[in-house]
Design a protein around this nucleic acid. Sequence first.
DNA 1: AACGAACCGTACCGTACGGTACGCCCATAT
DNA 2: ATATGGGCGTACCGTACGGTACGGTTCGTT
Lengths: 215, 215
Amino acid sequence: MALAIKVNEETFTPRQQAVLTAALDLLVENGDGLTMTAVARRASCSKETLYKWFGDRDGLLTATVQWQAAKVRMPFVDRSHLSVKALRSSLEQFARDLLTTIIGEVSITLNRTAITHAAQEKDDLGNIVLENGPMAIRRRLKPILEAARDARLLRFPNSEEAYRTFFGLVVRDVQIRLLLGDKGLTQSNVEANIESDVKAAADQFLTLYGVKANS
Amino acid sequence: MALAIKVNEETFTPRQQAVLTAALDLLVENGDGLTMTAVARRASCSKETLYKWFGDRDGLLTATVQWQAAKVRMPFVDRSHLSVKALRSSLEQFARDLLTTIIGEVSITLNRTAITHAAQEKDDLGNIVLENGPMAIRRRLKPILEAARDARLLRFPNSEEAYRTFFGLVVRDVQIRLLLGDKGLTQSNVEANIESDVKAAADQFLTLYGVKANS
DNA sequence: AACGAACCGTACCGTACGGTACGCCCATAT
DNA sequence: ATATGGGCGTACCGTACGGTACGGTTCGTT
């Protein structure tokens, strides 16, 4: 838990955030478009300032990803009253948040950038994205799963396995196809089916781990 | 189906394949290490030859990915006698092949390269990897699923959905974590659990879509 | 008013790399 | 033996980009 890199709102001044926004925009528009000159021009600042604030290109990239990844805050899910209905609703909420996040252009860009980065030895960005993406969800979902198990609504030997199954049921091949730029899978295309996919994933998860279904 | 890019063994001469091997090695060793000079030195050939054979850097990259991706040939799965046992065995075989492929260094490198490539406008590599990865599996698995449905072993409204669920149950978060360079998930780490994961995925899939379980 | 800090814009430097040109070797054909 | 062509090695060119330097401007402080 101490591993999570904390980025407060106050970490960056508004001016700096404007710079980071420019950097992110360039990243989204054109993955390799993040040249220092381009960011400086887009943000109407001098390159010297960029180097003063962020050290070097990698620092700017890291700051951008950190700042943006930390913004992915999923809405709070109630875990007080644990009826089957409430559990299903929570699962659907998680699935919906996960899917809508994943198919967003920003998320795709961040993941692509981090993966490109990880292809070289420097794996900072990969960890940042992981920490704010899958791991953040895991941290939030696991206690709910465990509470549901304690309430005899779910049955599983290992909450880690249960979480990963949920992830798989929700994400399936959507993320990798989007990352690879599958033209047969536009965001709007996925977006239209989110609700039915969400329901299907929750149903399947409950079929696999709900108390009724499992022996 | 005509979309699949065909790459015969004879497409490249042995000497050319040696060059492609060198290129792939450099790619695996260091994602951005694929400079024309480096490939030429590694393969003991001249840059001029590279340009003569492959046109430009992108052509070399594409040839490398095509050539390597086309090598991913999964073993044939018998689909003649369709007992429950044979079906489960087939599913496990698919899951095993999928997992072992995905966690391989070559696959990770290819996917990372294609994703990096897709981050710019050029999406050739993404399609090639997709076509030889997920889509190849889909083409092989779908008829088996449909045969099993016709034999009343499985029940699903949509074979596409069934395939994607299978994919999700098998891959879960493994691929994205490996692509992002998650240090808590080494190949050997995953490899050790392949067999149990494979069994679990097949079990879960049969629980969801097997005739016995569904109403 | 005077000073200084922060910052913009631009010019500049060094390097890395894609791509080209050229000289040489060697193998095969005639 | 000689010619020819495919290919190796190297040197070279142009450009793009990371990083630095510097003059000019704005703004806050005293």
